[in-house]
Design a protein around this nucleic acid. Structure first.
Lengths: 269, 269
DNA sequence: ACGTCTCTGG
DNA sequence: CCAGAGACGT
């Protein structure tokens, strides 16, 4: 028996909306510890890793580990039927064919229950090595989203360079070029979620496809801050912390023909 | 001479928007008593009946009964030219070729008049027998709209079952199944328009095509509540009261292969 | 998948 | 009254 009750149903809605454009289906693994999902995106370019700890739920029970193979488009459909303030309860048998979701509107006398057929999905669970990153940037997630959106109207890739002064996002395209710089800013009068920090081993500059960074930005409503962890030649980790519950991480490999210096140039194709 | 002046022009706009997807054209019958329209939908599956009493208008005059055969798509086009707060005046001769509409914006000094060509439309005015219904449900129209919309992302038909405890809407489809229950709720602290009531002779459960119920839901902005009247093997009546003026009723026959009991099962195909 | 438009909340 | 989010259409 697996059962998880989440008062903040809107959280689950947002999670699925943030992930479903990238990943069509995936195995949600429920264990005593919580729920996790790891999946490559459709084009096998980036990796999505979600972790929700059981103790973040109002109730969490998982007698035996279960694998819930879910088509995210369908899950999204069902979750559209839940209100943002609904209490959502997930249930599954030990050998489940379906997952059952109950939506309660705490204010009105409305109850809805939905069952979703599960699928057998080939999973390729990758071990992700723990790494020390050369640079770890924390910034407001809304700012991250804004920058990715703005830059993608100019170019298709972005060079992100981290120095101790801050971060620079650079792109170029037919229209012209763009550079957006965010300085480290930890002024005491700034709310923590508005701060930008760069934790630096050594300066790094990597180039990524904006298309994916933009997809990741859909998770911005889940967390006020986003964390970008970068090391030369390794995938960037774009991480959103889900408060008191876990995290949603996106991994994306850099463009290989990366320019190595920290100059103004963006690698032109 | 027929002339009717309506301060709340938005009402007419909403009415036509609510009906035009179902009915392509219809005869509006103007009499001393008011205006009425009765028409089958294009696929001859459901019936639309509109009644607007003359005393609901600011001015109403109808010297002789006139039949105004109107293509609703065209009427809709013209009404798009009226503001929601415009005063709309309808005029027609005793033997009219056209109906004339005047739109006045009470705030600005703007006047517009449009005339719409009338059509000869075969009408099949049905007498609808007055029936005692087994169950009469009243609920917030927004809730009705929400339920129909939500369920239609899962299945194509819905089983509506009324018991003294409340109403249950059930569907199933490829993705899974869904049940939404609304309890009778007449708590005194609930605004009348938020209440749900079930007036029950005997329990009824009928199955309908969601497609039509969804069309009916377009009328939800006309009235805060909707009334569903059901009797076994008879069409459901989905009624929106237009305050101080009349009503808009939709009739839809149930699916014949209806399951007779009140159980949890939804008829699977 | 993107952009537009509508509706809801602040 | 303005801004942000969600739904719908291309």
């Amino acid at each position: 028996m697996f059962e998880a009750r989440l008062t903040q149903g809107g959280l689950l809605k947002k999670l699925v909306e943030a992930v479903k454009d990238l990943v069509t289906d995936g195995n949600f693994e429920a264990t005593e510890a919580g729920i996790s999902l790891q999946a490559m995106d459709t084009s096998h370019v980036c990796l999505v890793a979600l972790q929700l700890r059981g103790d973040g739920f109002e109730n969490f029970r998982c007698d035996r580990n279960v694998t819930l193979g879910i088509q995210l488009a369908n899950l999204s459909k069902l979750l559209k039927c839940a209100g943002n303030d609904d209490i959502i309860t997930l249930k599954a048998d030990d050998q489940p064919d379906v997952i059952t979701m109950t939506f309660e509107d705490p204010k009105t006398e409305r109850f809805a229950d939905f069952s979703l057929k599960l699928m057998d999905i080939d999973s390729e669970h990758l071990g992700i090595p723990e790494t020390e990153y050369s640079a770890t940037i924390r910034m407001p997630s809304a700012e991250y989203a804004r920058i990715c959106k703005d830059l993608s109207s100019i170019g298709e890739t972005v060079a992100i360079s981290a120095t101790k002064e801050g971060v620079k996002f650079s792109t170029s395209g037919d229209v012209g070029t763009a550079n957006i710089t965010v300085r480290s800013n930890t002024a005491a009068d700034l709310k923590p979620e508005q701060q930008t920090t760069v934790e630096l081993g050594e300066p790094v500059a990597l180039t990524f496809a904006l298309r994916y960074l933009n997809s990741f930005a859909k998770a911005a409503s889940l967390a006020s801050q986003v964390q970008l962890s970068m090391t030369k030649d390794l995938p960037v980790v774009v991480e959103f912390t889900i408060s008191d519950m876990g995290h949603l991480k996106f991994y994306l490999a850099p463009k290989i023909d990366e320019d190595e210096d920290m100059g103004d140039e963006v690698g032109e194709s």
